[in-house]
Nucleic acid binder design. Sequence first.
DNA 1: TAGCACTAGTTCAAATTTGAATCAATAGTT
DNA 2: AACTATTGATTCAAATTTGAACTAGTGCTA
Lengths: 146, 146
Amino acid sequence: MKETLDSGELDAYFALVTAGDLVQRAVSAQCSEHGLTPLQFSILARLLDAKDGLRMSDLADTLVVSRSGLTYQIGQLEKAGFVVRESSDSDSRCVVAQLTSTGRERVQKTFPGHVALVREKFIDLLSPEEVATIRTALEKVVASLQ
Amino acid sequence: MKETLDSGELDAYFALVTAGDLVQRAVSAQCSEHGLTPLQFSILARLLDAKDGLRMSDLADTLVVSRSGLTYQIGQLEKAGFVVRESSDSDSRCVVAQLTSTGRERVQKTFPGHVALVREKFIDLLSPEEVATIRTALEKVVASLQ
DNA sequence: TAGCACTAGTTCAAATTTGAATCAATAGTT
DNA sequence: AACTATTGATTCAAATTTGAACTAGTGCTA
């Protein structure tokens, strides 16, 4: 195994980190138009797919945020009326977060702008082959790091 | 222009954001072995390439951090003796951050582990073609967002 | 079933990050 | 030169994020 990075490899690494950051920053601006932080939007978006809610830990793990950070954010979302906490039947240690109808409404209202942004700033700049490669390649990276 | 994202496009987007986050998290762990936060390491690494130092704004812009956040971090690095601030000759509004010899030492000591990590968790998982595609594709994304 | 390790979630204090307001210096216009 | 707009950096208060305790519940094992 080599012990250095050539300049192309280094550039690929910088591009990955910077693109990830900048996309998130753009998403952040769009979310705030709807009164959400990007993390809050991600949480609500995940819950939209989860008919029976999601456990705190599962949310924290998929969203790359600490447990305590998630506790805080779910607290904020609960105050805002977008989610409710329920304790799990099967395992009473677990807390399950559920979307309320208000929360569902809010995330659905935020979605179109979000999609448009991702399309404009990311997908439409690239060829389908590039998008496909990014997906398969970066999924390998994600798998190895999780 | 389409107004939706198909599932492959959505996965590519998630992979980008998640991979960026996870790589940064791994980098964060490695940096802390050397008593640096990832942001501090990035700052020092940029300064390593800049013989004459860098202006605060330039640093902030390339590092995806707010101006005030950078002021804070440069303050920390200055306290630690890794950088010094000088005011620019040409424009006395500007502040130029310079690496000290202590700072240079520290960042150089941190580098090998950093390189090894990027290689192990990113570059070596992928083919050279994948790395090249990620680089050119994501540089387009970065350019459009900056 | 008692003891022990492990898991889930929260609380707490400390560190970081941000945006808004501010101050200082430059550039452009009349 | 005087005015104004812009730019660069900092300060400040508020919000967020984190890791280290801590509490409570589960499951294993003797």
